[in-house]
Nucleic acid binder design. Structure first.
Length: 592
RNA sequence: CGGGGUGUGGCGCAGUUGGAAGCGCGCCGCGUUUGGGACGCGGAGGUCGACGGUUCAAGUCCGUCCACCCCGACCA
């Protein structure tokens, strides 16, 4: 490709609304342009990188017997009503009506289409196991797109779906994906860790997220260096410090005027926050037979700990949660700021499993301006549910080995999910098994967003000059710079550069040829910015020495290559780069 | 949806008490330059986010709305 005709201008300065480096550099280097919040155009450079990423995904999916297909982006609402997600999913789903007034959906994922196909196409166990995938546009109207390509509303995703006779088959396909995903990220040179993640409402029994660890990420993981335990904070467990005190002390009411927060209360009473009980009121959306129903949930955690909403949702079996309004709290008989379950009736109380193990806490007296001292679970009140509902934090003890865990941030670049039979049962996607019984197909779903992967790689590999793209996903393998300056020698340089360009292309090398009439500084800076791993320079200075100059983007040395060996030598360098990536792929252990 | 911020040429920005819309980069033309974002001369490019109001006069003051960014809520 000749740069003189490439649709991509580099920018000396990043747009002011780009804050993180991958966003700034992808914009500055001309890879992407923004159209609206969370909606981006992939310019030719990004498109080439994305195509390479997608081809890596294809390769790895094909290796584990995936069949590529293409499912529609626009769906009739019926298939979403069939699984109940038409109602379940909120405004995140794009909905519109066609000209005949029929409800339509913009695809945010493709389980519905998969089960619709499976229902019609899979009749026999002889057709299973099977794995299908596609690389397709998704629309999720995220309330807060951010950080360039890290979190967008429209994106392309490789999503695959495993279909099996039984759970053993699912386990196998899940394990296949577990490894294939490490291969995909490894081939893109993106370091990731797999962490256990929330399975949510889908009846699945296992899910993992692939996290690229970076401070710009918005998920928090707890990882244990000692034993390797790692989990998303949403579900991370930890060992809690139990109290050793006697519980016998008598309950006592004290005046605590204007002390509505735990911090204020602890200061006022001169006690640590761990000696208080924090009351959190949530409205839980419960799925009842005749539809949804909201119920007030009174959650109690120790004052120094944080409620984990995901754990709470799972513990009470709710569809979702929202903070309760003050009026809803008052209607229950509790006083906001001074609430406790002591003396309250007809309210769903759920306490963290540490609470029964704690002694003599300060809790609200359900009276404006008063708290109780020495409140004890069991004696003063009981709960409907006792469960782990607090969030693990940095330094908390590992649930497996007890060592202090680290809280780290990351970007979720992929996930794998054992769905089970939830979807197939919902729509009657069944097959006849060898024993003659009609059984629901057992499913798994697996996803990787290609744009987010590109952005993560850009975030990981850059310096003050620009991007440093791995050879496997760089838009081109070689950035050829011609320096046609000088007096009288320009023609020779140009001839040599054009010939080298043509020879390289002929030899199958992907070359971005900077043939523009620009100064050397501009060309070198643009080359650094775009971040193609190998840069070749043809200029009169080195040409006189009978060669061209080669520089690897992430190294400082340059080397002179005799011009008649250039094609061969370049191919060798490139091969080495590819080989280095392949060598570093890891086989991971996966224990189902 | 709550809190904060920003909207002036493609990008980055300035614009004073309301009084003729500017600068740098980029872009076009000519010339000189040519190994790390060259220089000279001459140009093009703007409904100042939108609408309404105040005023003799609005980029500037007032109101409403919109868009984008950041934090939070949210994230099959």
């Amino acid at each position: 490709m000749r740069m003189s005709s490439l649709l991509s201008q580099t920018l000396r300065e990043a747009p002011s609304d780009a804050e993180i480096s991958s966003h700034q550099l992808l914009i500055r280097a001309g890879y992407i342009r923004q159209l609206a919040a969370g909606i981006f155009t992939s310019m030719p450079l990004a498109k080439r990188s994305l195509t390479k990423i997608e081809n890596i995904m294809r390769d790895e999916m094909n290796k584990i017997s995936g069949q590529e297909m293409s499912m529609p982006v626009v769906h009739p609402a019926e298939i979403w009503k069939a699984t109940g997600r038409w109602e379940k999913v909120g405004p995140e789903m794009g909905r519109f009506q066609d000209r005949n007034g029929r409800d339509m959906v913009l695809a945010m994922t493709h389980e519905e289409v998969v089960v619709a196909i499976v229902r019609d196409e899979i009749q026999s166990y002889r057709q299973l196991p099977m794995m299908i995938y596609h690389i397709q546009t998704k629309w999720r109207d995220d309330p807060r797109p951010r950080a360039g390509l890290i979190r967008v509303r429209e994106f392309t995703m490789k999503d695959s779906y495993s279909l099996d006779r039984d759970l053993e088959g699912l386990d196998q396909q899940y394990a296949n994906h577990y490894q294939a995903y490490f291969n995909i990220f490894g081939r893109c040179k993106l370091p990731v860790i797999a962490v256990e993640s929330d399975v949510g409402m889908m009846g699945g029994n296992m899910a993992h997220e692939y996290m690229y660890l970076t401070p710009v990420g918005e998920d928090t993981m707890l990882i244990c260096d000692a034993c390797g335990y790692s989990a998303n904070r949403q579900i991370a467990e930890f060992q809690k410090q139990k109290a050793v005190e006697e519980k016998a002390i008598k309950r006592k009411k004290v005046a605590t005027p204007e002390m509505k927060t735990i911090t204020g209360l602890a200061e006022f009473l001169e006690i640590p926050e761990s000696k208080t009980a924090k009351a959190v009121f949530m409205m839980a959306v419960m799925q009842e037979e005749e539809g949804e129903n909201e119920q007030l949930v009174f959650a109690i955690v120790r004052g120094d700990m944080e409620l984990n909403e995901t754990k709470l949702v799972n513990a009470v079996g709710a569809k979702g949660l929202r903070p309760a309004e003050e009026s809803e709290i008052i209607a229950s008989g509790a006083i906001p700021g001074y609430a406790s379950p002591v003396g309250l009736k007809d309210i769903l109380v759920i306490v963290d499993d540490l609470i029964p193990e704690s002694a003599n806490l300060v809790a609200g007296a359900n009276e404006e301006g008063y708290h109780f001292l020495n409140v004890n679970y069991g004696r003063d009140y009981t709960a409907d549910i006792v469960a782990d509902i607090t969030a693990a934090g940095d330094g908390d003890a590992c649930p497996k080995c007890g060592a202090a865990m680290q809280a780290v941030r990351g970007v979720e670049v992929g996930n794998i999910f054992k769905l089970g039979t939830w979807y197939s049962e919902a729509v009657g996607a069944t097959f006849q098994d060898a024993d003659g019984d009609e059984k629901p197909v057992v499913m798994g779903s697996y996803g990787i967003g290609s744009g987010r992967l590109l952005a993560s790689v850009a975030e990981e590999y850059n310096d003050k000059y620009g991007l440093i793209m791995p050879i496997t996903i760089a838009p081109y393998e070689v950035h050829l710079v011609e320096l046609v300056g000088g007096k009288g020698e320009g023609e020779d340089v140009q001839k040599a550069a054009v010939k080298l360009y043509q020879d390289l292309v002929q030899a199958g090398v992907e070359v971005l040829f900077d043939d523009r009439d620009e100064s050397p500084g501009v060309k070198f800076n643009d080359a650094d910015l775009i971040g193609i791993p190998l840069r070749l320079t043809v200029g009169s200075r080195v040409l006189k020495e009978g060669g061209i100059e080669a520089k690897i983007r992430y190294e400082t040395e340059k080397q002179l290559i005799p011009i008649d060996e250039a094609v061969q030598k370049v191919k060798e360098i490139i091969q080495e780069m590819y080989a280095e990536v392949e060598q570093n792929l890891e086989t991971v252990e996966f224990n189902v």
